[in-house]
């Protein structure tokens, strides 16, 4: 489901390894990322490059993860979204609460 690509002093970079981010995997995703937050106590950068489409269940999990992070004074940053996925986040205004960057380099230099 997720793979840790980089572990730096300030943040973890993880990649979502599925193409369809939906009801079938949203709960597992939430569990795995919140465990990472609890264990590492670091900001998390999520790479979406493999995700072709996303549904409301998965978006709900993303928001739940952000709430969990913010309660620990941590942040969740999103990168490398495909246009359709990004458009959907814009539609429901999640760009107002998530930091979203085009790629990891851009995210790493901003956080």
């Amino acid at each position: 489901m997720i793979k840790i690509l980089k572990d730096t002093p300030g943040h973890l970079l993880i990649e979502i390894e599925i193409s369809e981010a939906n009801l079938d995997n949203s709960d597992l995703f939430k569990t795995q990322v919140t465990e990472l937050l609890d264990r590492h106590k670091k900001n998390i950068v999520i790479d979406f490059n493999r995700v072709e489409y996303i549904d409301s269940s998965f978006l709900g999990s993303l928001v739940a993860i952000l709430k969990h992070a913010m309660a620990q004074k941590l942040d969740v940053i999103l990168t490398a979204m495909r246009p359709d996925v990004y458009e959907l986040l814009l539609l429901i205004r999640l760009d107002k609460v998530f930091k979203i960057y085009g790629d990891y380099q851009e995210a790493a230099s901003a956080i």
Binding site: G60, A64, K67, I92, K96, V97
Partner: peptide
């Protein structure tokens, strides 16, 4: 209707169910 963005501390109150909102806005 889109809300006026207030305090980001209110993120914790964001409703986690987006299905009806996605359809309504699209």
């Amino acid at each position: 209707e889109e809300s006026t963005m207030g305090d980001l501390d209110a993120v914790e109150k964001i409703v986690e169910h987006f299905g009806l909102i996605i359809i309504t806005k699209a």
